[in-house]
């Protein structure tokens, strides 16, 4: 039976619900040797800042049970180099690009959005108010509903594009932040970013990351992410994009069932560059087997 994979995220129609999570898919081009990246619903770029960032000192990564900690520190080429060197290739390949934005002030978030206004080939902006690994900005905006709303409104005002807000799992009441962003004009919400964790080497007594703490990702966080996506999806009318430990089609379908309209595959792309494609193909098989369109799975869990 036919399965229509298309999903609608506010003003945007995606060819399917599988995206890639920011920070786990580079600028998309790194994956070109492995599969047709344009076949995905879209890619969220590495977090872009106004100026290039070199990132945190090493070690930046460590493996943990069923996942990993990272403290990359938003190393990126900067928005100008992205527009000059990466975006033309992404555009030429027909890849749906969601530009992930990182800044340390409301003004800089707005400036980033304005900087991208004249660039073609960006489908939406994803605003990172939830990075756990930088001193300023990031998570500070994501745990306070007033700050979250202020950033959302500022980016909305600065851009004609759909604005997605990426939420932090560290907000005490994530639904409250979600509602604040919705009221401020967000077109979609993405949940969740990584959860702060810590690992110590018992031999050297040193933290395993130079940044000491890092963001936990991978299958270890999936149940937490599902619970939070469910809470957010119940609280708002705008679409929700589910993220957190998705490594298979079944994982992704769980997120749709609890209310996500689309998903992002994250660290699974590190261990298998074809993971997003495999998640998508598995979801299509699932839809065909049941004779369902993928969008019709959204929120169907018997909760």
């Amino acid at each position: 039976m036919a399965c229509d994979p298309r999903v609608t995220l506010g003003p945007l129609v995606l060819r399917n619900p599988v995206l890639t999570a920011s920070g786990t898919f580079g600028y998309g081009l790194e994956f070109e040797p492995y599969f047709d990246v344009a076949s995905l619903g879209g890619i969220c770029t590495k977090g872009l800042s106004l100026l290039p960032r070199v990132g945190n000192p090493p070690p930046r990564l460590c493996e943990t049970a069923s996942g990993m900690l990272n403290a990359i520190g938003l190393a990126n080429v900067g928005v100008d180099a992205f527009c000059a060197d990466k975006l033309p290739h992404l555009r030429a390949r027909g890849i749906t690009v969601i530009a992930n934005l990182f800044a340390t002030s409301v003004e800089d978030f707005a400036a980033l959005a304005r900087r991208l206004e004249s660039e073609e080939g960006i489908a939406a902006l994803e605003v990172n108010i939830s990075c756990p690994n930088v001193d300023k900005g990031g998570i500070a905006f994501g745990v306070d509903p007033v700050m979250a709303a202020t950033v959302t409104a500022a980016v909305k005002k600065a851009s004609r594009r759909p604005v997605w807000i990426k939420l932090s799992p560290e907000a005490g009441r994530i639904a409250e932040i979600a509602c604040a962003c919705e009221e401020a004009g967000a077109d979609a919400l993405c949940a969740i970013n990584t959860i702060r964790g810590l690992a110590v080497d018992p031999e050297t007594w040193e933290p395993r990351l130079a940044n000491r703490t890092g963001g936990l990702s991978g299958p270890a966080i999936k149940p937490i992410a599902l619970r939070m996506v469910w809470e957010v999806a119940r609280a708002v009318k705008i679409p929700v994009v589910g993220i957190g430990g998705i490594a298979s089609a079944d994982d992704a379908i769980e997120f749709l069932l609890v209310g996500a309209s689309a998903v992002q595959v994250g660290s699974a792309s590190f261990r298998d560059p074809c993971a997003p494609r495999e998640v998508l193909e598995g979801m299509l098989r699932y839809g065909e087997r049941r004779g369902m369109n993928l969008r019709d799975l959204v929120g169907k869990a018997r909760l």
Binding site: G26, E30, I72, S269, P273
Partner: peptide
């Protein structure tokens, strides 16, 4: 392969 930026030296 250059995606995660974890192996900084």
């Amino acid at each position: 392969f250059g995606a995660c930026l974890g192996c900084a030296v």
